[in-house]
Computed example of a mutant assay.
Amino acid sequence: MNQLIYDFIKQNQDNILNEWTEKMKEKADERLVRVVSDQMFTRTSREFIDMIISNIESDNEVFTGKLTDFAEKVVRLGWPLTFVNEGLREFNLIVFQGMQANGIVTSENQMDIIYDFDKWSTPLSNEIVNIYARTWEKTVSLQKIALQELSAPLIPVLEGITVMPLVGTIDTQRAKQIMENLLQGVVKHRSEVVLIDITGVPVVDTMVAHHIIQAAEAVRLVGTKCMLCGIRPEIAQTIVNLGINLNEIVTKNSLKKGIEAALEITSRKIVEMEG
Rank of each mutant, 00 (worst) to 15 (best):
Y115G: 11
S141L: 13
L77Y: 10
E159K: 11
A261K: 04
M51T: 13
N60R: 12
I155E: 02
T172E: 10
I196N: 00
L4S: 13
E149Y: 11
W120S: 10
I49A: 01
S191A: 13
I196A: 00
R134H: 12
T44R: 00
V129W: 06
S121A: 15
M51H: 03
S121N: 11
V187K: 11
T224Q: 03
K66S: 12
L182N: 02
E192W: 06
I145H: 08
G65Y: 01
I94F: 04
G275I: 13
T106D: 07
V193K: 00
H211A: 07
V74N: 04
A71G: 06
K73W: 04
V222C: 05
L147G: 08
P123D: 03
R268I: 09
A261V: 06
V187F: 01
V208L: 00
V204R: 00
I196G: 00
E192A: 09
P156W: 03
G87S: 05
D171A: 05
R220D: 11
G185V: 02
V194P: 00
T206C: 03
K252R: 15
N130L: 15
L221G: 04
V203P: 07
K176P: 04
V187I: 13
N12Y: 07
L255E: 02
V163E: 00
T199V: 05
E47D: 15
S121W: 03
E137R: 09
N55S: 12
L150S: 08
V75N: 13
V201P: 05
I56V: 15
L142K: 13
K225I: 14
I270V: 15
M179N: 06
E19K: 11
E86I: 07
N181V: 08
I52F: 08
D116M: 01
L32M: 08
N18C: 04
W79T: 08
V240G: 06
N92E: 14
W20R: 00
D171P: 10
I53R: 04
L154P: 03
Q184C: 01
S45W: 01
T172G: 01
T64N: 10
L221N: 03
I104K: 01
E90L: 14
S191I: 05
